[in-house]
Design a protein around this nucleic acid. Sequence first.
DNA 1: TCAACAGTTTAGAATTATTCTAAATTGCAG
DNA 2: CTGCAATTTAGAATAATTCTAAACTGTTGA
Lengths: 141, 141
Amino acid sequence: MRRKLRETANETATMRLRHAGLRPTRQRNELAKLLFRNGHRHLTAEMLHAEAVSEGVKVSLATVYNTLHQFTQAGLLLQVVVDPTRSYFDTNTADHQHFYCEDESSLIDIPGPDIAVAGLPTPPPGTQIKRVDVVVHVRRH
Amino acid sequence: MRRKLRETANETATMRLRHAGLRPTRQRNELAKLLFRNGHRHLTAEMLHAEAVSEGVKVSLATVYNTLHQFTQAGLLLQVVVDPTRSYFDTNTADHQHFYCEDESSLIDIPGPDIAVAGLPTPPPGTQIKRVDVVVHVRRH
DNA sequence: TCAACAGTTTAGAATTATTCTAAATTGCAG
DNA sequence: CTGCAATTTAGAATAATTCTAAACTGTTGA
């Protein structure tokens, strides 16, 4: 007998959390389901909280902030810094870069292998390269 | 007869402001002198304000914010976004990129021609590329 | 099965960076 | 000089985010 989709989504979320070493609580499960149910997304804490509330998920804004940071630390999300006034989180953790459209404060993925950065100089003494972020700023013309 | 250095610096700052279409007020002059007196710098509004105060320049924090944004609009400064909690301004407006050391929240210039970004895809329809920012995140090891 | 405790969530206060407001001041054209 | 628009300012306001301390919940092991 085929199990309900909702049930499966729950198990997937739980697995994902356990794998990341995070205790699968009700809030983390529900947020994980919202975040990872469809294709990749870029969103702020406020946006995720609004989405949760509008879909009847009971969770506080503080928990959304905590959860986004925990997910980021666990490698489930990537934090993208483009706008000095807000923090975006990206559900696509694969190596890739972004277009940033200032007119509408929106991020668009650039698939990983498309971009190549050449001629990286050696990093400052005592440090090692952790990540290379490329943001292509675009504007309506 | 050789004129005093201070006098010359003042004229230079005034010129720079007039060129940028900004009325050379006392505050803008003094901030320009602090910003551009030596090699290139990365600094926040708070940092510049502290420096001004410590050198006896009378200027409010609000004016420092206003001035940094006006200078940026006029092309005298570049705003660099790397840290979700603060905004850096760079006196080097030439084409170049940055190392960002998270351990100490510090920015280090990577000279312009060293880095090359290849394989940029066409920008989203209706937009054109304005700038390509590369931030190389490094960590102490 | 469930007691107990560490981990988690939460409301609301606190913090931080930044912007706004409205009144005082200043640069400059005439 | 005078007058007015541009600029500066103190302090309030805002926005995003973090903190705090109390309530709650998941898990473990008897």
